[in-house]
Design a protein around this nucleic acid. Sequence first.
DNA 1: GCCGTTGCTGCAATCGATTGCAAAAGGTAG
DNA 2: CTACCTTTTGCAATCGATTGCAGCAACGGC
Lengths: 352, 352
Amino acid sequence: MTLIELARELGLSPSTISRAISRPDLVAAETRERILAAVEAHGYRPNGIARSLRRGESNTIGVIVSDLKNPFYSTVAKAIENQVSDHGYSCVICDADESAEKEAHALELLAQLKVRGIIHAFTGGDVDTLRRLQAEGMPLIEIDRRSDLPGVDAVLLDNALGARLAAEHLLGLGHRRIAIVSGPERLTTGRQRLEGFRKALANAGVTLDDEYTEIGDFREASGYQATSRLLQLDAPPTALFVANNEMMAGALSALREAGVNIPRQISLISFDDVRWAKYVDPPLTIIAQPTEQFGAVAAELFWERLHGRTEPVVRILSPSLVVRESCAPVTPAPAGEVAASAWRRGGDAGKV
Amino acid sequence: MTLIELARELGLSPSTISRAISRPDLVAAETRERILAAVEAHGYRPNGIARSLRRGESNTIGVIVSDLKNPFYSTVAKAIENQVSDHGYSCVICDADESAEKEAHALELLAQLKVRGIIHAFTGGDVDTLRRLQAEGMPLIEIDRRSDLPGVDAVLLDNALGARLAAEHLLGLGHRRIAIVSGPERLTTGRQRLEGFRKALANAGVTLDDEYTEIGDFREASGYQATSRLLQLDAPPTALFVANNEMMAGALSALREAGVNIPRQISLISFDDVRWAKYVDPPLTIIAQPTEQFGAVAAELFWERLHGRTEPVVRILSPSLVVRESCAPVTPAPAGEVAASAWRRGGDAGKV
DNA sequence: GCCGTTGCTGCAATCGATTGCAAAAGGTAG
DNA sequence: CTACCTTTTGCAATCGATTGCAGCAACGGC
């Protein structure tokens, strides 16, 4: 049922119907009642597409996350959706799947859909497309990860602080043979967590060995592989920092499989306090992010943009250390080799 | 930049430009090159809204999940998104937040957006809206939960089987004082898991006591509360079946807090093999669902509908039992009261 | 040389709702 | 009674792309 059909049926013009719906005060009370009754009776709904075309706006916002399966991003997406749906906006949520191509594709698609703004976690892809969208006046809000595009809003974590908290916790427990599994260089989160960690260690006079520096892709499988490699070193680390929750799951698998005891043989600390971190054996010490705030703040920045703000705003959120039981003081072993050879023997042998 | 502006600049008609983009074979090679070069240069993108209006279709599909934070649903959503984006479709993902109102609101919104179909997990709300959409010819595909609307496609789990697997596992370990935390009656998942469980116990001559039957709302908090109540009974259960992953997290909290040892004092089995279930202490015995299949099959059913199928199809997926370490044989205590009083003394006292 | 065909391009209508402007009706003041 | 204002409704253009139909040119066959 279209506006015109309804108008014909009521013997009124389409304009009147349209006004009765969107600006009721302009229509005589009696007419209005009659129209609304008919609308109700026929279940008429304005065609959102036609409306958007005419109004030149869509009441839709685009969200691109790099992995919808990752609870961090699904939580952020949910927070955004909740915020904007209260205002009658809807979300087109895209999953870039950590792929730059898919990201570029999603951006094009959202642009075609004429969304009012795009909130996205940069996946390292197409800065050109971003630049063009920005030039066209599309509000762009980055979450979690930063492209190097100037002038866009962003909600970020103080990754260096997070990495420092992790490093200092491990150093404080006496660890010196410390390894990291970080993310891709092309992502700010990957870079900053690595550099922040390196620097914090350096401040304490500890150098982060290349051998102990693994670069994954923030997905489970790479966490598994990286950790497996570290375990095969002649002098495996006594402590491990894993830079996101997905890779942490992989690390956990690798450690289980190798029969390594946490924290007795290796201390494990990682990023992002997923809900289950506290139920794991052992409960995980982690660097927590204010996950829902990412979404809420991003939505907020979006509204401001819509209401005329033109100056870019960057909000930095703070991580915090949550101490549980996956980190322990380094075992006072006679020599570095002990732990390694103990592992080879497997199981509980490393008890000392 | 619009089609008309571009046309004027090139001294061609809009029709030719349009054809050069969407049906290149109809345009002379030379003209086509010239047009495509200009398109590239100006970064012209067809206005998706106008295109949709004219074509009378949107290349958009709506997805409503009942809780985007729940890894089950985010995984399903991702699977759907991945499937349809390969075909140039985009997803509008809505979160009903387990609220019937929000669900109705989302349905209206998707209808206005003229999506090509809606894949949704019924939240118990507005069957009227669903019925109207169905009457209008909107492809409707239900996942996980079933409304009582006839004629719609659905991808469901064999919940009764899942519940039976859980019951038989517990029975096989000798448990008789068995409790359940299930979901709302208004949801098929809640009902079927409860009834299936009850029936499976009955088959073994065990009755599911009212005292042992808790109805939650599939969210973490209700799992916590229900479990806490069960623990305060004079004769607490020796085994507990929790009917979804969110409530299971709550149950875990409650058990931890009460210092109850799993599985020594209580055996725990629950639904949905979230990735972390195997890292928990103890690794959780669960009923696994083929999560990604839900999304893939739903997308498949959607395509079929688009391509003309009119007969409703219901696909039932099978759960499976994954045995880990959260269930143990019932402790051969002299009398039923022992366990209860042991708990009151707290901690490891119940070791017997 | 004429006609039919093929290939390319343009004209103009169309999708459905919105909105500036104008017309008609009713009311009030001078 | 006229002039003017207010309220209510309708007319018609508009948003931007698509597409059926027609026009035109070039070419080949007879």
